[in-house]
Design a protein around this nucleic acid. Structure first.
Lengths: 168, 168
DNA sequence: CGCGTCTACCGAATTGAACTCGGATGAACA
DNA sequence: TGTTCATCCGAGTTCAATTCGGTAGACGCG
């Protein structure tokens, strides 16, 4: 997606910024905030979704309300660097509900896994039974998360150089 | 928030699950999927927001469309462990637009910072000028992110033990 | 047990937004 | 300077969101 499509203009970037902060903005409000008629604004939003620029809309829920009392980062070093091995581990980890974020990185670790668990025993089980056994002999380190903050909005480096809106 | 409030029942959990995956579900569809009338469903969603269980709704935008060509994890070890020092570093980092996630963790690192940058030079600048200078002489390691996956939905450990819906 | 209260439910009615569509406008290009 | 085309607008229609009055179980208490 997002291939062979017209570059985003200033208004598109404003729409993306607004929807990252509040995905429930009504189309009417959104249109007003970017200076378009509702019909025109709706067209743009649909196009952004269609083109894959907007991947989805998600509610941000308090983990504590769901019984998540513990989160951790698990740093994994794989034994041998076989691309096929990585693919398998990646897929299996990505499917686990406890995994909130999965990073494949360069450097002294290979994988960084952000997990949300029920309690300490659950964490122990997850790390030893589910991760360690698949990580093929690599080093493994688990760090409890004391505090975590996630930003809603991505930086927009393309905004400044965006072309002027077309049309009338 | 979310203090001194009735525990969530089965239907609340279903609502939370649905909205995490698609925050733009119409209230009518949502109501149908959880087996409530639209008016009753709307009441519940409002209450969940009011109680802070739902913290917000966010569009998930493709970073590439915003000119993000590089992401990295920066592992920071602070020099001395003074709570006040941490507070200052935390706040300053959290305010930087490049920072997508900020973790304060136990273990061999203190801070893990997920950043999204324009290019390599931008990353160098961010790490040396903005992070290193504030980290008070700690060790610092930067790992490029080759691949990243984020799950939309949190695991729900409270769901199974949730009380039955009340009312009629 | 029987009563009162309370909470969550529903459904009808109203408001308002979402969405469609025909026509106009200005930019780009030849 | 004429043609093309994407984007815009606004009126009209459809349909969802929201309000509100009334009801039915659950619960606590006498």
């Amino acid at each position: 997606m997002n291939t062979e499509t017209r570059p985003l203009d200033r208004i598109d970037h404003e729409i993306l910024g607004a929807l990252q902060n509040n995905a429930r903005l009504s189309n009417k409000e959104l249109a007003a905030s970017v200076g378009l008629a509702p019909s025109s604004c709706l067209e743009r939003v649909k196009r952004l979704i269609q083109d894959g620029v907007i991947r989805g809309f998600h509610a941000d829920v308090d983990p504590a309300a769901l019984g998540v009392v513990l989160e951790a980062l698990v740093f994994v070093r794989l034994g041998r660097h076989q691309p096929e091995l990585l693919e398998g581990v990646w897929t299996q980890l990505a499917e686990r509900p406890e995994v909130r974020d999965l990073y494949y990185v360069a450097g002294s670790h290979d994988l960084v896994v952000h997990v949300a668990v029920r309690d300490v025993e659950h964490l122990r089980w997850l790390v030893t039974e589910q991760i360690s056994s698949r990580a093929e002999l690599g080093q493994l380190e688990t760090s409890l998360i004391f505090r975590h903050r996630r930003s809603a909005e991505l930086p927009d480096y393309a905004r400044e150089h965006a072309p002027q809106p077309r049309g009338r």
